[in-house]
Design a protein around this nucleic acid. Structure first.
Length: 192
DNA sequence: AGGAAGATCTACT
DNA sequence: GTAGATCTTCCTA
């Protein structure tokens, strides 16, 4: 399994969000491995983006967005932990939100974590996938480019799919650009 | 102390 | 399909 290098994340968040589709999120849990294919993402910027956590400037709680790329940035919204990967061009600010996965391996464990029997709703949403993968703020700041991490991102097969974009979901004030990306026709995306 | 926050589940019409 | 309750931190006053 080839891990995506740090340089992958040192680009415009929208590019990273798009290129992350089709790659694999790997969660190491004791002896178990949970694997999901990334099928939906959103890009967030810094001070010019009213929907961004970094909109109000650098604070302790959003500091990770200003720091080294390739690490997780995790926060809670409405009782759900949401997983982001810090991504920005050198010296910039930003992150990519992972919004949906296609379950690949460890499905029984995911089901136990979420107690649903419908596979389609197992990881099809930002709060759902963190629950299925047992991701909380304890994993905040983890380096997804390090093979020793409990959470990492490895290269997947990026063939035979089309990428669709739309406006970001659930944000109060969105930007003009379409910053949500997903694999067209995939049944595990959170919303058409 | 209070409320906002990139969401989810349930229970209806 | 839509509406409403509920979710749990952490920020802002």
């Amino acid at each position: 399994m080839k891990i995506l290098p740090r340089s992958f994340y040192e680009r415009d968040p929208a590019l990273v969000a798009k290129d992350l589709l089709g790659n694999m999120l790997v969660r190491r849990l004791r002896k178990h491995l949970l694997i999901g294919r990334i099928v939906e993402t959103e890009a967030y910027y810094g001070e010019n983006d009213p929907a961004s956590r970094a909109y109000t400037g650098r604070k302790i709680f959003n500091e990770l967005m200003f720091l080294e790329v390739g690490k997780t940035f995790i926060y809670m919204v409405h009782g759900n932990w949401l997983l982001n990967i810090v991504s920005h061009s050198s010296g910039g600010v930003g992150a990519v939100l992972i919004r949906a996965l296609e379950p690949i391996q460890g499905i029984e464990i995911m089901m136990k974590n979420r107690k649903v029997e419908n596979i389609c709703s197992l990881t099809s949403g930002p709060g759902r996938l963190t629950k299925a993968f047992a991701i909380t703020n304890k994993l905040s700041g983890v380096d997804v480019t390090d093979s020793n991490s409990e959470l990492l991102i490895v290269q997947g097969v990026r063939e035979n799919f089309e990428i669709e974009s739309s406006h970001r979901i659930g944000v109060r004030r969105d930007l003009q650009e379409k910053l949500r990306f997903y694999i067209k026709g995939n049944r595990f995306i959170s919303k058409l």
